Structure formats: C-alpha cells, structure tokens
Measured scan of single mutants.
Amino acid sequence: MDALKSAGRALIRSPSLAKQSWGGGGRHRKLPENWTDTRETLLEGMLFSLKYLGMTLVEQPKGEELSAAAIKRIVATAKASGKKLQKVTLKVSPRGIILTDNLTNQLIENVSIYRISYCTADKMHDKVFAYIAQSQHNQSLECHAFLCTKRKMAQAVTLTVAQAFKVAFEFWQVSKEEKEKRDKASQEGGDVLGARQDCTPPLKSLVATGNLLDLEETAKAPLSTVSANTTNMDEVPRPQALSGSSVVWELDDGLDEAFSRLAQSRTNPQVLDTGLTAQDMHYAQCLSPVDWDKPDSSGTEQDDLFSF
C-alpha cells in the first residue's frame, strides 16, 4: 500500500511530472533526481522514447528462454528487412502500455495491464526491452520488442512496467475491499429498513384510530445511509488515497477476473515476472533518469539497429 499512497501523494503535489519523457535525446524537461521519484509518476504514465523492432507469436506467457528466442527472431526479421526502425513513445501506467508513433502521434497499440504476463531486458541484446501480452483480438500470446538507447534504459522500462503492474494490483485490492464494505453496509441498511417496515402498523389501523404518522421519526431512520450505499452501487469504487486528485481509476471486468485468478494461483500475485536478476534490479533502481541518457562506457552510441 505504500507504493499506492506515495504515488497518489506525488501526483497530487505535481501532476505535471508524469508528462516528462525519457530517452528522447535531450528533449525532456528537468528530471527527478532518483528512481523513487520517477516511480511516483506512474499514475498518469511515464513516457519512454524507443524504437519498435516488431512482434512475434509465442506459445507460453512467460520465460527467459522463451523471450530470448522470440527477441532473436524479431531482431533477425528487422535486420533482414533493412528498413529504419519506427520511433515510438511507450506510455507506461497502472492501466497498461500505450504505444504511439512519434511522427504521426497515431495510436499503435493499447495493452491493458492485466494482459501483460512478462517483461524483460534481454541478456543477449542488452539494449532490447520486450514484453509478452495476450492479444486483445484473440487468445494468442505476442512478444513485442523495442530497441532502447542503452542497457540502462531497457532495464528502466522493464522495472517501470513491473512497478505499474504492482500498483494496478494494489488498486484492485483496495477497490475489492471498498466494494465488500459497501455491499455489507448496503445489506445491513436493508435489514434495518426491513425491520422498521415489519414493526410499522398498517396504514388502515392508523387511520381508524385517528393517529398521525410521525414524519420526524421517519426522517431519523437510516434511510439516507441505505440510499447512499445503493444509489451508486454500479459505480466502481476508487482508492481513497486518490481522493481529490485528477486521476480516475476504473476497474473493468477483465482486470477484476484476471487479478482474482492471480490472487488464487500465485504466492506473490502482485509481482510481474521479469528477466532481471536481483543485481540488475538493484543497479537500475539506483540510477537517476539522467543516467539513462548518458552514453555507455563501451563506446559511442549508434542510432541504428545494427549497432548491437
């Protein structure tokens, strides 16, 4: 819950932080000083300027060897085509990944977070970031790969997607708890209302004896509580940590079903599988986004697919 609360507080303090972009060759504004600060901008989305290598189908939802083989196929196909790589912007948030063309600003792909089953910074092609997700059109699994400016960037994108998945799962947990509370309150309110109706004398007997209905007592009954809980029953509950912020979080049926399955089948359902080692994760978390744009010590960066 700490990640969720800190993310909400950060967004309320400075929503404009989320509009910064990394990996864009110096076009961005001043960047936060450390990885923790940038992680807090996830709610509205972190932007990464990358190059799209392509996509291939895979048979399993996750796995280092599986993704490595898929990336190898994608890279080989991209090299064989001889075409310049498409420059894209990857927007990562707890909602998922939005992929747009840098030149036309046209939407290429919009992947809900619950469809993503794996992401990684490839070991062999260490400047490549990739994720595996279920197609929104059918049940097939797709591996999408992107060329980053350097290994640090690939690791940073991988960690960002993993963190977005974690925050999304926490949102789901909060929403589920809130819905259970509202359902319980609604049920209790309905029981109270039913009890009051059972003990209320029939209207005919009131008229016969000349008694008047006590409207004041009726007004004191917990009807307002019942209506408050039943009027918006169809509205999706939102985490309290975000009250007053500009973010509107809505959970669709697909996300609810997917996270429910994860909660039942996995020990740590909030953790998205990645190909990063503990050492890689520690190294990337210690980086400032400013470091992502620094040239690798191995030599001059080449803006070309064939540089790796």
Score class of each variant (00 low, 15 high):
Thr274Glu: 08
Thr104Asp: 05
Ala258Met: 14
Gly210Ile: 03
Ala78Val: 13
Phe129Trp: 11
Tyr131Leu: 01
Leu193Phe: 01
Pro237Val: 02
Asn102Gln: 08
Gly8Asn: 11
Val226Tyr: 09
Gly299Asn: 13
Gln20Asp: 12
Pro201Gln: 10
Ala133Leu: 13
Ser205Phe: 02
Thr267Phe: 02
Gln240Arg: 11
Leu107Ser: 07
Leu103Cys: 05
Pro201Cys: 05
Glu40Lys: 15
Ser243Thr: 07
Ala241Asp: 11
Ala164Thr: 10
Thr225Glu: 08
Ser227Leu: 12
Leu50Gln: 04
Ser186Leu: 04
Asp273Gln: 08
Leu85Lys: 08
Gln173Gly: 02
Gly26Arg: 05
Phe165Tyr: 13
Gln139Gly: 14
Thr38Arg: 15
Ala121Trp: 10
His144Arg: 13
Leu215His: 05
Glu65Phe: 11
Val226Gln: 03
Val58Thr: 15
Gly8Phe: 01
Val75Thr: 15
Thr77Trp: 11
His125Val: 12
Asp183Ala: 08
Glu177Leu: 12
Gln264Ala: 08
Asp253Cys: 03
Tyr114Asp: 02
Leu47Met: 14
Met124Gln: 10
Ile98Pro: 15
Asp252His: 04
Arg266Phe: 01
Leu212Ile: 04
Asp191Tyr: 15
Asn232His: 11
Gly299Thr: 03
Ala164Glu: 00
Thr56Trp: 13
Leu255Ala: 00
Gly25Thr: 03
Thr231Val: 12
Asn229Trp: 00
Phe165Ile: 01
Ile98Lys: 06
Gly275Tyr: 05
Ala185Asp: 13
Lys19Ser: 14
Thr100Val: 13
Cys199Tyr: 14
Pro237Met: 07
Gln139Thr: 07
Asp122Val: 14
Gly96Pro: 08
Ala18Arg: 10
Ile98Asn: 09
Asn34Asp: 14
Gln20Gly: 15
Pro94Cys: 15
Arg39Phe: 09
Cys119Ile: 07
Leu287Ala: 02
Pro289Met: 06
Pro201Ile: 02
Lys30Thr: 15
Thr89Lys: 02
Gly190Trp: 14
Leu11Pro: 14
Asn105Val: 06
Thr149His: 08
Lys184Thr: 07
Ile108Lys: 01
Glu301Gly: 12
Pro94Ile: 07
Glu257Cys: 07
Lys152Gly: 15
Met55Ala: 12
Cys148Phe: 10
Pro202Asn: 02
Leu193Pro: 04
Leu272Asn: 06
Gly45Cys: 01
Val236Asp: 03
Arg29Ile: 00
Asp273Ala: 03
Arg27Cys: 12
Ala208Ser: 12
Met124Ala: 07
Ala121Ser: 07
His282Pro: 04
His28Ile: 15
Ser205Ile: 09
Ala241Trp: 01
Val58His: 12
Gly244Arg: 13
Thr100Tyr: 11
Leu251His: 11
Leu212Gly: 11
Pro201Ala: 07
Lys176His: 03
Lys72Phe: 08
Glu109Asp: 11
His28Cys: 14
Ala154Gly: 03
Ala168Glu: 02
Lys166His: 04
Val92Pro: 13
Pro269Lys: 02
Ala10Trp: 01
Gly23Asn: 03
Glu188Lys: 11
Lys62Gly: 03
Ser288Leu: 15
Lys181Asp: 08
